[in-house]
Write a protein that binds this DNA or RNA. Structure first.
Lengths: 347, 347
DNA sequence: TCCCAGACTGCAACCCTTTGCAGGAAGTTG
DNA sequence: CAACTTCCTGCAAAGGGTTGCAGTCTGGGA
């Protein structure tokens, strides 16, 4: 079913059919109605590829995430996809498996078929980013980049809330299980941690970096137990969940002997035992916002406007049962920091 | 960067550039190398939309899932996307929010931009399916449909394993928490349950239907406690996780007082407390298989072959700590089935 | 030396829409 | 009644590729 079939059956030219869809006010009422009726009857829909060829807009947007196995990203994806659909755009999805080179390749491959790409927790270096930024409009989520639209989360404030919570409970010594070094979120969480640590007097040692996965949490838990901390701040919920599991296996009671705090607020943080205290970050909202910013940018771009819109969303500590006052005598303490741990100082 | 720029710089015609990419054996070695070198230098990549316009193939495939919030689907998606990428195809993703009408609309909207669509746990009625099947090649995952490629899972056998496990532990009476009525998986799981029930003598009452979500599990747990069963078989892990949570809240020990079995084998089933006994179904493998079947079909189609390939993947009961022998005297029993429960008989 | 096959390459049409431009009809104004 | 507007519609080009067909060039056989 092409535009010509419809044109023929409605006894008009293809141009008129086209206009009936794209600029309805340009065609006389009865003509338009006849065309649309015929189009509906035969199930005609404009071919977007052909349209895109001439208009330069594909009505597609790309979305690239590091790992669909981390529920954080499906959540962002869900928001983004819903918002895109609302604007009558379709979304291309790709998963990089936390691999920055693959990310670059995916951008190159997608660039021509989309109007822009939303990059979620991009792991690209600045150099890599510059190599692709001219290919298609890029929007970043959970990563700060100059001169393009970005959707951020106030990670530092989230960490402040978490550390203040621990301090209020009486903790004096905590461990941070670091995330990927290429992650902006990790850098920001460390930064927030450092300043909250100074402000509250809670000492924080850093372990890792760890892959942002459950398995890494299992591994991390043992390292934590070799130190004398009474609380653990994990880079994300997946790691925290791993810690919870391994601590249970080792017979360490949470929260009585050890407090654990996650980050992200994935659904499962509420479903485990004990329910995990975590810092909730916006996920679907971030996805929606990113698509919105991208679409706005594209609109304005045609008007010659510049980019650089930034939206920062708040975080909220969700206190559940994985945190409590520290034990009188710290359990499992061996009196000194384990090998591999180090004071959290400057980068 | 169009094919003409490259042609000009390589001092050949556009046709030759095109052939250098699509039918390299048709162009002389040194010409081809020159063309490809130039193309690489200027960063040229064929515009797939333009190519698709004339070849009729888009090198895109669609994937539609009911709910990205259920980790089952991101897992399938991950497999599908990886396999598609391997075949140099991109994937369009959409989420229906468990809504069959939206599913139909999404198929219509996608049809023109893809070579085929993979439908995951489709909720469409037969009538709806027939209304869209001519739009574009459809492949189904987790749903049986005649004459098109499908990837199935042996749900009935999974249920057999689960029920035999319960029977072996000594359970005589269990509840099934049913899933969505439009779900093929739910029908198959019920069927397997019925026959396993007969074979083992374990009585099974059915509750529900429930939405395949955590919250529904919370709700279901109370209904279960109002019956005299000693074990619960949930439609899926999300519901089982909800049951686990609510039982813990109500002070019912799992597995001592109540055994709980999930279905799907999502990652989180292993991370909760107690770790959930569940029936593992292939997820990434199913996604990969679906894409493979679809691509094969498309290849053969051009050769005039027919469709209908079917791949059935096995299931595996993963025994963890949420199942054990029933208590001597069934806890919370009130001697009769709750209102709303009914014997599991025919449909 | 001539003819022919085989290997390459270029021309031009085509895929499906959109859109600038121009033409025709109807209505308005002087 | 002539001269403009205004409104609507069609023609044709364009957008970036692919591909059937025909032409050029080369090498080999007679």
């Amino acid at each position: 079913m092409t535009i010509h079939h419809v044109a023929q059956r409605a006894r008009v030219s293809a141009s008129t059919v086209s206009r009936a869809f794209t600029t309805p006010e340009m065609v006389r009422r009865d003509t338009r109605e006849r065309v649309l009726r015929v189009a509906d009857e035969v199930g005609y829909r404009p071919n977007r590829a052909a349209r895109g060829l001439i208009t330069g807009k594909t009505a597609n947007i790309g979305l690239i995430v590091p790992d669909l196995g981390n529920p954080l990203f499906p959540a962002v994806l869900k928001g983004a996809q819903a918002r895109a659909q609302q604007a009558d755009h379709a979304v291309f999805l790709a998963d990089t498996d936390e691999n920055a080179d693959l990310e670059v390749n995916l951008i190159k491959a997608m660039a021509k078929q989309v109007d822009g790409i939303v990059l979620c927790s991009s792991r690209m270096s600045d150099k890599q980013r510059r190599a692709v930024e001219s290919l298609t409009p890029l929007t970043f989520v959970y990563r700060k980049v100059a001169d393009v639209p970005i959707v951020l989360v106030d990670n530092a404030d989230g960490m402040r809330q978490a550390v203040e919570h621990l301090a209020a409970l009486g903790h004096r010594r905590a461990a941070y299980l670091a995330g990927p070094q290429a992650s902006w979120s990790n850098r920001e969480r460390r930064r927030g941690l450092r300043s909250a640590s100074r402000a509250t007097g809670v000492d924080v040692i850093e372990l890792g970096p760890f892959a942002p996965r459950f398995e890494a949490g299992l591994q991390a838990a043992d390292l934590v137990l070799a130190t004398d901390v009474t609380a653990v701040l994990a880079y994300n919920d997946l790691i925290a969940l791993g810690v919870l599991n391994r601590l249970a296996d080792r017979g360490v009671a949470v929260p009585e002997q050890m407090s654990v705090i996650g980050f992200d607020g994935i659904d499962f943080a509420a479903m485990c035992t004990p329910p995990l205290t975590t810092v909730l970050i916006p996920k679907e909202a971030a996805g929606r916002a990113a698509v919105e910013l991208l679409l706005d940018w594209l609109d304005q771009k045609s008007l010659g406007h510049t980019a650089g819109a930034q939206r920062t969303l708040g975080t909220q500590l969700i206190v559940r049962s994985s945190t409590a006052a520290p034990p009188r005598v710290s359990a499992g303490s061996n009196g000194r920091a384990a090998r591999g741990a180090r004071q959290l100082k400057g980068d």
